Simulated assay, not measured.
Amino acid sequence: MDRHPAEAMARPDLIRLDDGFVCLRFESMKVVSALAAVRHLLDTGVVRPGDTLLDSSSGIYAHALALACHRYGMRCHIIGSSTVDHALRTQLAVLGAHLEQMEPSDDLKLDQNRRVARVRALLAEHPEYHWMRQYHDDVHYLGYRTVADRIRRELGTERLTLVGGIGSGASTGGLARALRERAPDLRLVGVQPFGSVTFGSAHVRDPEIIIAGIGSSIPFANVDHGLYDTIHWLAFEAALAGSVDLLRSRAVFAGLSTGAAYLAARWERDRAPDRTVVFVAADTGHRYVDSVFARHEEAVRVADLAPREVAGPQELVLPWSRMRWNRRPVGPGGSGFDGRVGEGASRAGAAP
């Protein structure tokens, strides 16, 4: 029996949508990583009950960290993006988390840079705070091992393809690392928005939006580029079509990044029907009712969408591009990965 609701939320559903086509559905995926990270930091003495845990978030991680702090008796301080909505602000307040929200901005990079600057200022004022560094400390990989074990038990690992948003790198990265311990031929397909620096699409602007949660305008050290076999870049209009079709045809109500992962997974499955394709649904669709699902009549048919195959990021075009990455270890921006796990590098003075 669970001792806290967050523990139940950390267990995803495995839903077989068709033969060889499976949805790994989370209520809120980052609860998995936040719970395991906080537990590890407590067990190793990096933090103590009652300490303040600090981080920046566009929404989902803020909720996850607030739940983990509630579970383990910690204080929570969030520097939130302007995208944090009223429903989440209310939940954070009731859970006892302190939220500082950035002023509205049309520039995602400016929003992220301002949040990092505020985190640094707070650490200078309060060196006793612990910066969780969800984008840079791979303590956030740890929680996904349990999920990988469940995939292994229920689906096996023979001829398996995993598809999901890249984001901070911890979710698909953590799942792939754990699964490849017994299945080195696991194929990992990462999903990115246009405008993200992580795999070199910063020069391509999506006129609608950069999809929060799967890309970034600043480098993330937790992304291990060498894990990924294939990358798909999808624009808002393609992700919207995927989200709407997934609800209409499969009754799965999930967020915008899931719509993008669903499109990529359909494409990969059609080209390798002998493989089992699992795609990650990171959160529910409630945050996207107005911005995505209310626009369902605008959605193009997913059957009419196909990616452009590209040899490099310089060839990327909207609304959908695909590239064989072939596990190259370093991204176009030169960002790397140092492999450290929870070494307490997230206090004042650590690199962002």
Rank of each mutant, 00 (worst) to 15 (best):
D2E: 08
D2R: 07
D2L: 13
H4K: 12
P5D: 04
P5F: 05
P5I: 02
M9K: 03
D13Q: 09
F21L: 01
F21I: 00
C23Y: 02
L24V: 09
R25H: 04
S28V: 08
M29H: 12
M29A: 09
V31A: 03
A36F: 01
D43C: 00
V47G: 03
T52W: 06
S57T: 01
A62V: 04
H63T: 15
A64D: 02
A64R: 06
A68L: 13
G73K: 01
G73C: 01
C76F: 12
I78A: 11
S82K: 15
D85S: 11
A87G: 09
R89L: 08
E100W: 08
P104Q: 11
D106M: 05
D111H: 10
A117N: 12
A117E: 13
R118H: 07
H126S: 13
H126M: 07
P127C: 01
Y135I: 06
G143L: 02
R145C: 00
R159T: 00
G165N: 14
A170K: 05
T172V: 12
L179A: 04
R182A: 10
A183N: 00
D185R: 13
R187E: 00
V189R: 13
V191I: 10
Q192L: 14
G195A: 14
V197A: 07
V204G: 01
A212K: 07
G215T: 15
G215V: 15
S217N: 06
F220D: 02
A221I: 10
V223F: 07
H225L: 05
L227A: 03
D229F: 02
T230P: 03
T230R: 11
T230N: 04
L234S: 15
A235Y: 13
A238M: 11
V252R: 05
V252F: 07
L256R: 14
L256C: 08
G259T: 07
R266D: 01
R275C: 09
V278T: 09
D283M: 04
T284F: 05
H286T: 06
F293I: 08
R295C: 02
E297I: 11
V302L: 05
A303Y: 12
L305F: 10
P307E: 15
V310E: 04
P313W: 15
P313Y: 12
L316T: 07
S321T: 10
W325F: 06
R327Y: 02
P332C: 04
G333Q: 06
G334K: 12
F337Q: 02
D338L: 15
G339D: 01
R340S: 13
G344W: 08
S346L: 15
A351K: 08
